[in-house]
């Protein structure tokens, strides 16, 4: 059984009959497909240009979910207020870490805001004040959508940079070199 698996992973030429080998390209194709996806993901996960875009996508998704939940009176308010409390705590922690780094003479650039702060470009004032609009609309107003919209506007350049970088990666993968074209034509003739 173990030998068979290895055979699927790479061709065992000396043992293969033509019919047996027919099945192997399909396995190779599957392996190649999985690897292509994995490599594309690795590009997205490892590229520094994608780091900010990735965070922006995560933030946008979570903010959208919270905004939808915020339309439900009661439960929605809890979620929305939860996000605001997380924001306040994250900012306090960030401030404290910066102070400590400053005292220790460390690089302040290494201090990062916690990921639980979902609207880092929106002030606490706006986030909290919009919550007070909720009672006027009987809790039906998705107040979190207001700060989410501001954040989305601030995230546009990061999302655009990521989309452009992804486009470049895909474009490069579409290029067929002259050498490759000659090789393809050799088997098509």
């Amino acid at each position: 059984m173990g030998e068979r698996r290895e055979g699927l992973h790479m061709p065992q030429v000396e043992e293969s009959s033509e019919a047996e080998f027919e099945a192997k390209p399909r396995a190779l194709e599957l392996v190649a497909r999985v690897k292509a996806v994995r490599e594309a993901l690795a590009v997205v996960l490892l590229n520094a240009e994608f780091a900010e875009g990735r965070e922006a996508v995560m933030r946008t998704t979570l903010n959208a979910l919270i905004s939808v939940a915020d339309t439900v009176p009661g439960v929605g308010d809890l979620v929305s207020w939860g996000a605001d409390i997380a924001k306040i705590l994250a900012r306090a922690q960030y401030k404290r870490q910066r102070q400590m780094a400053e005292l220790a003479g460390e690089d302040l650039g290494l201090v990062k805001m916690s990921k639980i702060e979902l609207t880092p470009d929106v002030s606490v004032k706006i986030a909290v004040l919009t919550e007070f609009l909720e009672p006027l609309f009987l809790g039906l107003l998705p107040s979190h959508a207001i700060e989410s919209s501001f954040q989305l506007y601030a995230d546009f350049p990061k999302l655009k940079a990521m989309a452009l970088e992804l486009r470049k990666v895909y474009k490069e993968s579409m290029e067929v070199s002259v050498e490759e074209r000659v090789a393809i034509n050799h088997f098509k003739d």
């Binding site: 293969s16 033509e18 080998f21 190779l28 194709e29 393809i184």
Partner: peptide, 16 residues
């Protein structure tokens, strides 16, 4: 063997 070469090449071209 020649048949194996062609089969693998075909799969790789289709995948590409």
């Amino acid at each position: 063997e020649e048949g194996d070469v062609k089969a693998l090449a075909k799969a790789l071209i289709e995948q590409r």
